[in-house]
Nucleic acid binder design. Structure first.
Lengths: 224, 224
DNA sequence: TTCTTGTCACCTAGGTGTTAATAT
DNA sequence: ATATTAACACCTAGGTGACAAGAA
């Protein structure tokens, strides 16, 4: 099973409608997708990876006057479907379980010709991050068991709209308030200007633990 | 076989008598110990690690008037013998061989009670870094083959004296000239004040390739 | 005297949203 | 109008030797 870290922060963003910046060079996600993992075989090898599924077949635009997202037509042509392997892959279950697994090297881009291995997304489209755990089967005919050797985890609160510039001003403010790298834009006393509690790992509530019991729409094999 | 990176720079330091700072919190080495590796089984798992052997049983002091090191008596009691595993260990041979392996997370300390896993050394003593490649034997009784499943590589040009403050002023100057993090101490025009050629990886000469054919004094098993 | 410790200014390296200019 | 790009000031995070003060 898998537990999403910083769930309180993800919820806060999700309530406003999370936006993630995409740039030509690649931009990290904030919040960062981080999980605690339970129940692996400590001695077995696993690959950990993420991909991003379009939530629907629509393109969106933001109506500033009503501060809301509107459907702006059918989706643009799908981007090349890429996968981000956690750079520590492959590693033993014991290694993955002994600390939080952080996908902080994952970057999002809107450059269809990107050759840095970043995740390519369409701006103004909605995406659902997915987390996959692949058991490295030591058997020689391991390909035959590919279907049973992985599990997929989906946290709906991590859905977001890809953008090249923030649309919802409240999202901008929450990013500034909770991302340490944006501290320069906080307008508060240089004193008590620390990390707010909802973004402080030391104060986060118990996150929901997800089991992959139910089938997930769009299996790993469906990703090109 | 293993090839030492930045050999020209190591040689330049070694000619002056390399010194490495040790601090309570732990200090990185400069130059960083980096190698290219050849001839691994791409599909097999290996652990890469380093340890440090006292070169002799002596304590040294630096004579500033003659700019030379003098023997100052018998060595202090040996420090706890520690080993630094490359943090990517274990990994496949293919992974280790596809790029330079850098031990830039390795730190040296003089704190006998260190609990950060750093390498503990006596200041004013001389040390020989060693590099070990351990094959992860998949057989159940792998302990029996421990002796034949590792190879040790020693580059004598990486020997150094541990110090809490630099003694030889020419070492200080060479560190400042070649370590990018010390650029603030260079006294040259803010222009053409780049990395000197001898420390520029793009200009380095072909390094010596070392085979572990000859037995090395003090096998891995001799390290507590 | 000789060696060690802690603080500091000054770097490297790279992650932020802002802003003005530019596409479309 | 709306969306994208590139340069930029301002951060985080952490690696340097200098230096003054302290310890043996």
């Amino acid at each position: 099973s898998v537990q999403l870290e910083m769930k309180a922060l993800w919820d806060e963003f999700n309530q406003l409608g999370t936006e993630m910046i995409v740039t030509k060079a690649g931009r990290r996600m904030f919040p960062t997708f981080q999980v605690k993992i339970f129940g692996m075989d400590p001695m077995a090898d696993y690959m950990l990876l993420m991909d991003f599924l379009p939530v629907d077949d629509k393109r969106y635009r933001y109506a500033f006057h009503s501060s809301s997202w509107l459907v702006a037509g059918k989706a643009d042509p799908a981007t090349p479907g890429r996968v981000h392997y956690h750079p520590d892959s492959p590693a033993k279950g014991a290694q993955w379980m002994k600390q939080i697994v952080s996908f902080d090297k994952l970057k999002l881009t809107n450059n269809l010709l990107d050759d840095n291995g970043h995740i390519i997304l369409n701006s103004m489209h909605r995406y659902q991050p997915r987390f996959h755990v692949v058991y490295v089967d030591p058997r020689k005919d391991s390909e035959k068991y590919a279907e049973e050797n992985y599990k997929t985890f989906v946290f709906e609160e991590t859905r977001f709209t890809a953008v090249t510039a923030y649309q919802n001003h409240r999202i901008t403010q929450l990013k500034i308030a909770s991302n340490p790298f944006a501290k320069g834009f906080r307008d508060c006393d240089p004193e008590d200007c620390g990390t707010p509690i909802h973004a402080d790992p030391a104060h986060q509530l118990m996150s929901r633990v997800l089991s992959p019991a139910l089938p997930v729409p769009g299996g790993l094999h469906a990703v090109p």
